[in-house]
Write a protein that binds this DNA or RNA. Structure first.
Length: 549
RNA sequence: GCGGAUAUGAUCUAGUGGUUAUGAUAGUGGCUUCCCAAGCCACUUGCCCGGGUUCAAAUCCCGGUAUCCGCACCA
């Protein structure tokens, strides 16, 4: 079978130090890959380019939170329940099954209870189904431990710091918070190499906005840019403004981050012909999302791959953490003028509550105080999973006037979430070109200079000591100026160019015999192989400009 | 997770129940003094793991692991 693009890229990636299978000497484990010297550099450059879009262009703030995440956080977010598959073990032959795999269309509870399910292997009745979670679990501490997971997304770390961050930005919406880091999912069946990993890198932004004002301050700057949309039938290119006006995209904020994503991906070297946004249909929306667009990149082997998800998560996450932690995570929409409003308040009488509820009286007091006053005369609260009626001698209802300066509300969240590994793979694939040069297969990685791991190859034409010493000094100077170089004096000049082309180095500087006389060198452009001559003194500003373009 | 295929240096690959396991590419050192994978010399790295059959297994059988394809699941 002939090698396809994926095979060729993974071979090149391994040979040249981009990507290696992890733990290979012990047989390897599916879903884990190492980034080699060039791969980690490339990844870092992509992440930093991403940061420049979010921190510089969009004024987001960045935080960094633990990858080990407390059980309570992921329970509140729904991951403990959502990331679960029901499993059952055969008591006789010890085989484990995912329940979904062995029953069809009957209720799980019923089927298990009624002993309807037999082990496909040894035909014993199966019972006691239990859920297994797709998160990696761990424990914190020894002895008295707390349950935890490796985080399946970086987002929760941002949500649970909301109140602090809201204060940091001096209580103004909208604001965006980013986090770049690793996430972990114990995939059932990871394949597709680096496209589906069990430990992967993501870059996420959580942008908090007022649900009654889903605009974006920079929208005017980008409204005329054209965005590439796919509605599951055909592709279209329309201006961002039109997309929002026609309600193809629900709101400005969502549209703004979509175009920011498009610009980032183009800037990182994605082929515009192999890029589109696809809208999630209603039945594939996550339970918390009201609208979601995936940026998809095309890959020869895998087809369209979801590399970025941009979701309107509404108030789901913050509300969940408010409910479950009790922390105040509201934002305030201030009135022009403070208002005086009538409020009804419940004042608990502790001298009655105390004797009646003993140790629980304190908790009941705070529940009562936070209760929304209704008109009904009976007050029942939900305490410890039970409905508890509070006798009316235990509290007093007072009507007072209060000054209100605004409305409290739970901000909505627009979440652009980027799979860095997937993007990295697609960029390599989109940059990969090959041809034949005198019967020799020739491979070029046309990486954008901004993200190329090595910017400049420094090559003395011959091993003449005079050329070598000029080259070494130049190499040193370029590095001190912050330009990553690769010095190479081995083999023929053609071979050295080829080596640099294969790892995506955009420029090669050759020091030849004329350099000794007039301090000039040639700069070869990777994509055209054209050479120009420059004085060594002019080199650094010239290259810097080319690299930053 | 189910079914099928595959597994030989860093990469690709030949090979057979029986000496020291091919060849190429890449890499390293040297010669060559050279502008697009030139040549010459020398050198480095390998039969996925475990068990079985056998006098003898990289080769045959079983199990595991990984990779690829299909199904299922998922982002």
């Amino acid at each position: 079978m002939p090698l396809d693009t994926y095979d060729k890229i993974m071979m090149l990636a391994k040979r040249r130090g981009f990507i290696y299978p992890s733990f290979e000497i012990y047989g390897g484990v599916a879903g884990f890959y190492d980034y080699g010297p060039l791969g980690s550099r490339l990844k870092l450059n992509i992440e930093n380019l991403w940061r420049s879009f979010y921190i510089l262009k969009d004024n987001c703030i960045e935080i960094s939170t633990p990858t080990i995440t407390l059980y309570e956080v992921l329970n509140a977010s729904g991951h403990v329940d959502e990331f679960t598959d029901l499993t059952v073990d055969c008591k006789k032959c010890n085989q484990s099954y995912k329940v979904e795999d062995i029953i069809n269309n009957i209720s799980v509870d019923e089927a298990i209870k009624e002993n309807k399910i037999k082990c496909p292997n040894c035909k014993t009745n199966l019972k006691d189904a239990y859920p297994i979670n797709l998160m990696f679990s761990t424990k914190i501490g020894f002895g008295k431990v707390r349950d935890a997971f490796l985080r399946p997304e970086t987002a929760q770390g941002i949500f649970i710091d909301f109140h602090l961050l809201y204060r940091y930005v001096r209580e103004k919406l909208p604001f965006g918070v980013i986090q770049v880091g690793r996430g972990y999912r114990n995939e059932v069946s990871p394949r597709q190499g680096i496209i589906r990993l069990r430990e992967f890198s993501m870059a996420e932004a959580e942008v908090f906005i007022d649900p009654e004002n889903k605009t974006h301050p920079n929208f005017n700057k980008i409204k005329n840019l054209e965005i590439k949309l796919f509605d599951n039938i055909k592709e279209m290119k329309i201006s961002v403004e039109k997309a929002v006006d026609k309600n193809v995209i629900n709101n400005q904020a969502l549209a703004y981050y979509m175009i920011l994503t498009q610009e980032f991906l183009y800037s990182a070297g994605v082929d515009p012909e192999k890029f589109r946004f696809r809208k999630h249909s209603d039945n594939e929306l996550a339970h918390y999302a009201t609208e979601c667009w995936d940026a998809e990149l095309f890959s020869e082997r895998f087809g369209w791959i979801e590399c970025v998800g941009i979701a309107d998560r509404s108030a789901y996450d913050l509300q969940s953490h408010i409910d479950s932690s009790g922390k105040d995570m509201y934002a305030l929409r201030k009135y022009e003028e403070p208002k005086i409003v009538d409020v009804k308040k419940i004042i608990p009488k502790m001298n009655e509550l105390g004797p009646l509820f003993k140790g629980n009286a304190g908790k009941i007091k705070s529940i009562l105080e936070n209760l929304e006053m209704e008109d009904s005369k009976k007050i029942t609260i939900n305490f410890d999973g039970k409905e508890v009626e509070i006798p009316n001698n235990c509290y007093e209802i007072v009507e007072t006037k209060e000054k209100k300066i605004g409305d409290k509300f739970v901000p909505h969240v627009i979440e652009p979430s980027y799979g860095i590994d997937r993007i990295l793979y697609c960029i390599i694939e989109h940059s990969f070109f090959e041809g034949k040069e005198k019967d020799e297969e020739y491979k070029i990685l046309k990486l954008n200079p901004k993200i190329a791991p090595i910017k400049v190859g420094v090559l003395p034409l011959t091993n003449d000591d005079r050329l070598v010493s000029i080259a070494c000094e130049l190499d040193d100077n370029l590095r001190n100026a912050g330009i990553e170089t690769y010095y190479d004096d081995g083999g023929s000049i053609g071979r050295r160019y080829a080596r640099m082309d294969e790892v995506g180095t955009p420029f090669c500087i050759t020091i030849d015999h004329d350099s000794i006389k007039d301090n000039s060198v040639t700069i070869r452009d990777r994509d055209t192989t054209k050479q120009i001559r420059k004085k060594i003194d002019e080199l650094i500003p010239f290259l810097k400009e080319k690299i930053d373009n």
